[in-house]
């Protein structure tokens, strides 16, 4: 009896796990019909499973997710930024455009401040970064000096423009056109624009 019981109990468990082939199923069924003990055992197992299954369906307490999120290590800042970018694509595009534009403009301006340059004329003298129109000399045409100074002792028949520099006028000096000093980036930009526009219209 005890040994038959052991084998049958093993069959019961394999049945409950859905592992019996049809021959074994028949064997189990036949035995259960003939043996009250085993039948009782089998019913108890089935009842036990039904009980345990009825115990399911619990829900996590309220505020569970919030509590978990509060306990997490701090979020990397760039992620908050990325999420924000995803939500405001137009604003990002616009500000990116502006940043690149001004950035490009300033770097251009910065680059140009390094170079000393001036409009070539035959009668000009140069000392360090100062362009000199000597006394008694006459320059026909406009003069532009970038990143340097100009000293006018003679005569300029045209406009004088100094970018990032200063102009000194001797008492005998004479300019027939306008004299302009440009120091600020904005002024420089305006000058460039004017020049471009003038170029276009010419």
């Amino acid at each position: 009896m005890a040994s038959c019981q052991k084998e049958i109990v093993r069959l019961m468990h394999r049945y409950l796990d859905g592992e019996l082939v049809s021959g074994e199923k028949r064997k189990l069924k036949a035995h259960l019909e003939s043996c009250d003990n085993c039948q009782q055992h089998f019913l108890e197992l089935k009842k036990t499973i039904a009980f345990v299954q009825s115990a399911s369906h619990l829900q996590a307490p309220e505020g569970f997710t919030e509590n978990v999120l509060l306990s997490l290590p701090k979020e990397v800042k760039t992620i908050g930024m990325q999420r924000w970018i995803r939500k405001h694509p137009f604003f990002v595009a616009a500000s990116l455009f502006l940043t690149l534009m001004t950035g490009g403009f300033f770097s251009l301006w910065q680059q140009e401040t390094e170079n000393f340059a001036f409009t070539k004329h035959e009668n000009l003298q140069v000392e360090n970064d100062t362009v000199i129109i000597p006394a008694g000399e006459k320059v026909k045409g406009d003069i532009v000096v970038e990143n340097g100074n100009i000293r006018i002792e003679g005569e300029v028949q045209g406009n004088v423009t100094v970018i990032n520099g200063e102009q000194y006028m001797a008492s005998a000096g004479n300019v027939t056109g306008d004299i302009e000093e440009i120091d600020e980036a904005f002024g420089w930009m305006w000058f460039k624009l004017k020049k471009t526009a003038a170029g276009v219209f010419d």
């Binding site: 619990l58 996590a60 569970f64 997710t65 978990v68 999120l69 997490l72 979020e75 992620i79 999420r83």
Partner: peptide, 15 residues
């Protein structure tokens, strides 16, 4: 590193 996305995972599996 997106913690909001993790919140959704928690919601799915918390019970």
């Amino acid at each position: 590193g997106d913690q909001n996305a993790f919140g959704e995972i928690v919601e799915l599996y918390k019970d």
